[in-house]
C-alpha cells in the first residue's frame, strides 16, 4: 500500500506535463498535488487501495485478469449503472445479493484460510444487510439457496452433492449465525474440490471406448479411499493419522488393491462416472457433521 502511495507522485508529473517543455519545480509540485487531490476526490485512491488489498489477500495466479473482473463487478454494483430506473423488485434484489456474496466467496481459494474467512464474513454481511422490507440477518432460505447455487456452478453431479445439502441446510425461517454459515461454505467448497479430484481419478480408470470403468477396479479404489478416510477417525486428529492415511493412499497400496481386484475375476457390470463420483462424495459426506 505504502509503495503505491510513494510511487504515484513520481509518475504523475510526467503524465501531466508531457506538453509543456520543462516545467518549473514549483509548478510540477503544484500539479502533482492537484492531481493527487483529484484522484482522492473522485475516489480513485480509495478504489485502488481496496483493489490492491484484495489482490494481496487472494494472491491470484493472474492478478491482471483478477483486477479486470474485480472492477467489472464494482461497476455493476455502483448505482451509476442501472440505478436510475424503477427500484428493482425484491426477487431481483435477492438475486443481486446472492451474486455479490458468491463473487466474494470465490475471490480466494478455501485453502488460504485467512483470506477465505475474511471473504466469508463480507459475503455474510452482504446477505444479512437490512433493506426496506427486509429485516437484517440471514435466514435459512437464503443460505440454502446460496449452497445450491455454489454446487450447481461447481459442475458436480446433483446426485453427488444432494446428500451434503440435506446435511448442511437450515430451516427456511431459522436465523443462520456466522459460524454455521462459514462452516457450511467451507464444507461446500471443499466437497466441490474433492468431487473434481475424484473426477480426475475416474478419468484415469475409465476406458474411453466404453465410457465406463471396470467395476472391480473402481470399487477397489473407492475401498482404499474409504480405508484411508477412516484412519482419520478418532478423538484427536493427530498428525500421525494424516501420515497413515497418506501412506494408505500411496501408489503401491492403490496398485496392490487394484491388482487384487482384477485377479478376483468376479463377473460385473461397468461403473459409470456418476456412480463413481456419487460413491466417492458419499465417503466424504459421511464425515460431515449435520447442522444443529
Amino acid at each position: 500500500m505504502a509503495a503505491l502511495e510513494k510511487r504515484r507522485p513520481a509518475v504523475a508529473p510526467g503524465a501531466g506535463f508531457s506538453d509543456g517543455g520543462r516545467p518549473t519545480a514549483s509548478r510540477a509540485a503544484a500539479g502533482a498535488e492537484s492531481e493527487e487531490d483529484f484522484l482522492r476526490q473522485v475516489g480513485v485512491t480509495e478504489m485502488l487501495r481496496a483493489a490492491l488489498l484484495k489482490v494481496l489477500e487472494a494472491r491470484p495466479e493472474e492478478p491482471i485478469a483478477f483486477l479486470a473482473r474485480y472492477f467489472e463487478n464494482l461497476g455493476l454494483r455502483s448505482p451509476a449503472s442501472g440505478g436510475a430506473g424503477d427500484p428493482p423488485g425484491q426477487l431481483l434484489l435477492q438475486q443481486q445479493r446472492l451474486s455479490r456474496a458468491l463473487w466474494h466467496l470465490r475471490l480466494a481459494h478455501h485453502s488460504q484460510r485467512a483470506a477465505f474467512n475474511n471473504n466469508v464474513s463480507v459475503a455474510y454481511e452482504c446477505l444479512s444487510a437490512g433493506g426496506r422490507k427486509k429485516k437484517p440477518g440471514l435466514d435459512g432460505r437464503t443460505y440454502s439457496e446460496l449452497l445450491r447455487r455454489i454446487c450447481r456452478e461447481g459442475e458436480a453431479p446433483d446426485a453427488a452433492v444432494a446428500p451434503l445439502l440435506r446435511k448442511l441446510q437450515c430451516r427456511d425461517h431459522e436465523a443462520v449465525p456466522l459460524g454455521v454459515f462459514r462452516a457450511g461454505m467451507r464444507t461446500c467448497f471443499v466437497l466441490l474440490e474433492f468431487v473434481a479430484r475424484a473426477g480426475a481419478l475416474y478419468r484415469l480408470l475409465e476406458d474411453p471406448a466404453l465410457a465406463a470403468a471396470d467395476r472391480r477396479v473402481g470399487q477397489a479404489v473407492l475401498d482404499t479411499l474409504e480405508g484411508a478416510l477412516q484412519t482419520g477417525d478418532g478423538d484427536e486428529a493427530a498428525p500421525a493419522r494424516y501420515l497413515e492415511a497418506g501412506s494408505r493412499l500411496g501408489p503401491d497400496n492403490v496398485a496392490l488393491a487394484m491388482d487384487r481386484a482384477v485377479v478376483a475375476r468376479r463377473p460385473c457390470v461397468p461403473m459409470h462416472r456418476e456412480e463413481f463420483l456419487e460413491k466417492a462424495a458419499a465417503l466424504f459426506i459421511a464425515k460431515v457433521k449435520p447442522v444443529g
Binding site: 473522485v42 475516489g43 480513485v44 478504489m47 483493489a51 493472474e62 491482471i64 485478469a65 483486477l67 479486470a68 472492477f71 467489472e72 464494482l74 461497476g75 455502483s78 451509476a80 449503472s81
Partner: peptide
Amino acid sequence: YGIARFFTEYFNSVC
C-alpha cells in the same frame, strides 16, 4: 463512464 468502467477496460486490454 465512471472510474470502475475505465479500470475494467484498462485491465481487460492488458489481458
